[in-house]
Design a protein around this nucleic acid. Structure first.
Lengths: 341, 341
DNA sequence: GGGGAAGTTGGAAGCGCTTCCGGTTTTGTG
DNA sequence: CACAAAACCGGAAGCGCTTCCAACTTCCCC
């Protein structure tokens, strides 16, 4: 009875068993060219018989490829990661990566410590590529990646600069849809709750909403930032009501903020949707459970994650995919109903 | 202008610069004993001056330690990972790991493909330990880890067997609290929606609820399983109403199911909490936004993740921590209010 | 039938670190 | 002051794989 350290078979043993050189065996497992059909099959048989699995550390050391990618998440609001939004992103990324040999390293870069760890990870080249969900505008994480020169794909465009690779939802278009819907259903005095000010997504949603209103010949009465959080949304709603006592529609740049706004409206005895229509952005699961259920701009979050991963894999394989914008659409529910048929 | 392959300094260079052997340098960076103070400092200086970072692949290869742990999630309900519950777990784990040098590998083991990947990951010893969030009962993932003999920490106890290390919430106690609350507030005809049948958590919640009722001298009118999903909860509620037309309380083993139940009750014109009190389990963020807001058993999800990570780290360091049960408590909201003061 | 081009082949040199082991120095003790 | 125990030190042997390179076959076309 050994304590079974269970030595795993090595490439040498595979090669010996197949009667070829280690070089050839290596070529086979990496299915590289320059191996005759016969040898290739011999190696494959040996691999199967020995149940050989290459040692990733050794591969990494010799080839200088880590065999992993990292998804780094950063935002000011601590715990914002807990947002189901990120959970969906992670699922998308994980799903897409399932088709590859790459492992997914997850890194929360919210705290100073987290950013240090991120930096170290890059310097160590422990990952071959990076996916960055950076919510705040001043984010230097992208620069770090460039210095390490690892391929990066952004989830959502960063505030400054136009990175080579990103995937984003059509924030502007979605917000425009919201504006059109409100205009079409007879709303005339809209206000808006924007997100974190230093965020491109927030800016795009604000622009889209404004443009959409303008097309319909409507002014935007007021805008207040709400940090993308529920409480922030509530506070913004209070400020808006103070400045503009009688809006008949509010567009929030996220569902969380819309929920906060709903709370304030209810407290004030303002009826939704009779007095004020409310539209959110994201279409989180919880948007279905508010009362009334939230009309909101749907964005394909999981697909966003999947596309990020696919794009990164493409980059690693030497392709040069461009940016990708995923469509958004309006999900109409009770908080801003359509016209009665 | 080179294309800057940016060779990183190696341990040899550090050793040379510090005027010591590579062995000594290695000892220093691993802060192992048997190095004189003088040399230790010399090496540390050299490390700083060269900005040396050890190459993890090389370390892994030589030391047979991966420097990473994996969090594997498995459940039948695809996309259940998207549950904010998991997001919180991940945040907890990530936070705890921040204090260590370990990276976090995330693996979705829902699909057959995912499980294959998990298996490969173990055989490759790409991780030094495993955290397992296995929602379903028949889960063989645990056995795989044992075979690979890697330390495993379970999140929640598996249905069968009592693993050495797990961290779980006090499901039974929490459910008992729910029962007591209902009894105390005058409810006499309770029914329950349980979770996935093959789940220990569900069983524990059912047991706790039953026991709690028994202590108060109340019978449990009926139980129906609801798969831990919103739709499952709704269906269970329908079945319950069919069998027991007039309950005055329902306890759901998860918030999602409670939300489904609320929907059915509303559709049926049954008032909450006047006619029927509803209590959930989890205290997700969305529990605050139902109408009425959901009274629910709170479990410290993030702490659960943190403790899992801490426990695993402990195991890796050779400690033998035992299982850990985290307390739950009742969060009283509108769907099952307390007694008026 | 000769001259390559194109495809194969394996030896050997690493990749950058850990750790065993034998030897040397320092320390502690009676 | 002698002697064993404890601490320190560095040489060298790997860890398991990739890849460069030089040599060797085949095969094709004029």
């Amino acid at each position: 009875m050994e304590p079974s350290p269970k030595r795993m078979p090595t490439l040498d043993e595979v090669a010996a068993r197949a009667g070829v050189s280690r070089t050839a065996a290596s070529r086979v497992i990496n299915n590289a060219p320059h191996v005759s059909r016969a040898k290739r099959e011999a190696v494959q048989r040996a691999v199967r018989e020995l149940d050989f699995v290459p040692n990733p550390s050794a591969q990494a050391l010799a080839s200088r490829r880590a065999g992993a990618v990292v998804l780094a998440v950063s935002s000011d609001e601590p715990g914002l990661f807990a947002d189901p939004f990120f959970a969906e992103i992670v699922v998308g990324v994980g799903t897409a990566l399932e088709q590859t040999e790459l492992e997914l390293i997850l890194l929360l870069a919210n705290t100073p410590r987290g950013r240090q760890r991120f930096e170290r990870l890059l310097r160590q080249r422990r990952a071959d590529g990076v996916m960055l969900m950076a919510l705040r505008g001043d984010d230097s994480l992208g620069r770090l990646c460039e210095e390490a020169d690892l391929p990066v794909v952004f989830g959502g465009r960063p505030l400054r600069g136009e990175p080579a690779w990103y995937v984003d939802a059509d924030n502007e278009g979605g917000a425009r849809l919201a504006a059109e819907h409100l205009a079409r259903t007879g709303r005339r005095r809209p206000v808006m709750i924007s997100g974190q000010v230093d965020t491109r997504a927030s800016a795009a949603r604000e622009r889209g909403f404004t443009d959409g209103l303008a097309l319909a010949g409507l002014p935007l009465l007021g805008v207040e930032p709400g940090r993308f959080t529920e409480d922030g949304g509530a506070e913004a709603m209070e400020r808006l009501l103070r400045a503009h006592p009688d809006p008949d529609a509010v567009f929030a740049a996220s569902d969380a903020m819309a929920i906060g706004a709903l709370r304030i409206l209810r407290e004030r005895g303002i009826r939704v949707p009779e007095d004020v229509a409310v539209i959110g952005f994201d279409d989180l699961a919880s948007a279905r459970h508010t009362s009334p259920p939230l009309t909101t701009v749907h964005q394909p979050v999981r697909a966003l994650g999947e596309e990020m991963a696919r794009m990164l894999v493409g980059a690693l394989e030497g392709r040069r995919p461009g940016p990708l914008i995923l469509p958004t659409r309006l999900t109409v529910r009770g908080s801003a109903p359509g016209l009665p048929a």
